[in-house]
Design a protein around this nucleic acid. Sequence first.
DNA 1: TAAGTAATTAAGTAAATACTTAAATGTGTA
DNA 2: TACACATTTAAGTATTTACTTAATTACTTA
Lengths: 91, 91
Amino acid sequence: MSINELFKALSDENRRKILDLLRKGDLTSGEIAENFEISKAGISQHLSVLKNAELVYAIKKGQYVYYSLNSTVFQDVLKWIVQFNSRKGDE
Amino acid sequence: MSINELFKALSDENRRKILDLLRKGDLTSGEIAENFEISKAGISQHLSVLKNAELVYAIKKGQYVYYSLNSTVFQDVLKWIVQFNSRKGDE
DNA sequence: TAAGTAATTAAGTAAATACTTAAATGTGTA
DNA sequence: TACACATTTAAGTATTTACTTAATTACTTA
């Protein structure tokens, strides 16, 4: 995972909405897709981007795939942002 | 300024590098450009994106334009990120 | 085993993005 | 005034991105 991949993943409105949905609890690919106008295939591709950035992880249960937030990676983004509220040289 | 514009602005590696340069202090458009391989016009376009997202502001002094970080807007991104370390419903 | 369901992968496309060079704008100075 | 310099804007292009539909893979159940 790179910080670049992370910001690229976060730069899409639909992907951020997926993350927000997952805050309430784990969901299957199909349940996530119900919240969007776009196709299931489109959602699957977004989930793949989020998974590669390690913002979510996926666990297969039978024919379903459950997606969960991986909140640890948000720490990296947090760290990056926090720099900008401190003076250069402090880090 | 929208959160979407903000994330889009942050999704480019060169723009994040510009922000990082500005942490050390204000710089002119030309001084910023010296740190990159890309053309001055290209940098000017990146600065325009950062300015529209209100991540930086620009002050013209004579023929130079000085760019500064606007650290207040980073708070908005911070707030967005912090959500993901708390349970849904807490916010 | 065959049919149904969930999800992903493949292939194609339209729009967005990050660049380029050239032209334009604004300012300083001989 | 004219020329130089700093920066931005315009116009064009190659690449990336976000989608689509169709095909494929994996699992469940009658």
